[in-house]
């Protein structure tokens, strides 16, 4: 269980950081509130809708799906990296094949323009 002390420290820092930041901001802020200040940031242009009404472009969803696919790929890299020395060259070639197949998908995404914005 003592192996989890670093993780607990991480969680402690991660939780206390926003709390401390908000507390310090509360202490040092001037407290002058203004409706204009509360508007969603729209690159200097007057916002056309409320923040919670703003719909995101559907293009983001493709990026999100691709992110999930590569996220799952990362999951397989994790135990492989832990066992890398024991698996030796066999494991290296194995992961190379795994990644090569996924690079095909990556090249396809690139060529189809799924990663480009315009």
């Amino acid at each position: 269980m003592s192996a989890y002390i670093p993780i607990l420290l991480f969680i402690l820092v991660a939780v206390s950081f926003p709390i401390i930041t908000i507390l310090i901001a509360k202490l040092v802020q001037a407290g002058r509130h203004d409706p204009v200040k509360a508007e969603p940031y729209e690159c200097g242009i007057k916002p056309t809708s409320e923040a919670h009404d703003t719909r995101f472009s559907v293009r983001y969803y493709l990026i999100a799906v691709l992110f999930v696919v590569f996220d799952v790929e990362t999951v397989f890299l994790y135990p492989w990296a832990v066992m890398f020395r024991k698996l030796a060259l066999f494991g290296f070639i194995e992961m190379f094949v795994f990644l090569a197949i996924l690079v095909v998908g990556y090249v396809y995404a690139w060529r189809r323009g799924a990663l480009s914005w315009v």
């Binding site: 493709l62 799906v65 691709l66 795994f98 990644l99 197949i101 095909v104 998908g105 396809y108 995404a109």
Partner: peptide
């Protein structure tokens, strides 16, 4: 699994 992920990626695109 890498093939399954490839199919998911291409299908999504």
């Amino acid at each position: 699994v890498s093939l399954v992920l490839l199919v998911a990626m291409i299908g999504a695109i």
